[in-house]
């Protein structure tokens, strides 16, 4: 049973961005999963980021309803409504079936456990230099700069940079699988 993610709601509503960061660490995985059926019709990363900004903006008006995870449930509605709206705007229709489904039960993610953290860190340390550098550039940048700029910063052509990131993730997944960790199961 997960703790109520609304423990952060009062601070978020008061404008505490650090509290929102703590909420994001729990809420991002289920919100991303809720976009699964929109994957072919919208850029889910763009939709998710915009929806998270809207959650931050409306959080002061989010009143609890006696059930847990009120802000997360509101987030699911916001992200899915935005996905539908963007699919229509880009004329990438039809919107996938399932619009009329009742509100799905949603729960925040558990923080990665120590064993998973250690395994990922160990596998990262085993990456060859070039994939490791490309991956580090993306992670350290926090989504601020385009890949062209990141590639230039590490002295790679953009295509080489992208190939190195793909290789890094593939090698990490293989290493984790050998350690008994299936990333696909972690995502489920």
């Amino acid at each position: 049973m997960s703790a109520d993610s609304d423990q952060h709601l009062a601070a978020i509503a008061a404008g505490d961005a650090d509290a929102f960061a703590r909420w994001l660490a729990l809420a991002e995985p289920p919100l991303r999963r809720s976009l699964r059926r929109f994957a072919t019709v919208v850029d889910t990363e763009a939709v998710l980021q915009e929806a998270l900004l809207r959650v931050w903006q409306v959080a002061p008006r989010c009143a609890g309803d006696g059930r847990p995870h009120a802000l997360l449930r509101l987030g699911v509605r916001i992200v899915q409504n935005l996905a539908r709206s963007e699919a229509r705007r880009h004329r990438l229709l039809p919107v996938p079936a399932g619009d009329e489904l009742p509100e799905a039960e949603v729960a925040p993610a558990q923080p990665p456990d120590a064993a998973l953290r250690a395994a990922v860190s160990t596998c990262r340390d085993k990456l060859p230099p070039q994939p490791a550098r490309a991956l580090a550039a993306r992670l350290d940048d926090g989504g601020l700069r385009a890949d062209r700029a990141l590639a230039a910063a590490v002295g790679m052509q953009t295509n080489t940079f992208l190939q190195n990131i793909t290789r890094a993730r593939r090698l990490l997944a293989e290493c984790l699988r050998k350690a008994g960790i299936d990333l696909d199961l972690e995502l489920a």
């Binding site: 961005a17 929102f20 960061a21 994001l24 660490a25 729990l26 991002e28 991303r32 990363e45 998710l48 980021q49 998270l52 900004l53 931050w56 923080p111 990665p112 993306r138 992670l139 940048d141 926090g142 989504g143 601020l144």
Partner: peptide, 13 residues
């Protein structure tokens, strides 16, 4: 526990 997605959103905020 923050991803680059979360970092990008927090940066905008």
């Amino acid at each position: 526990g923050l991803t680059t997605t979360a970092e990008a959103v927090l940066q905008r905020i």
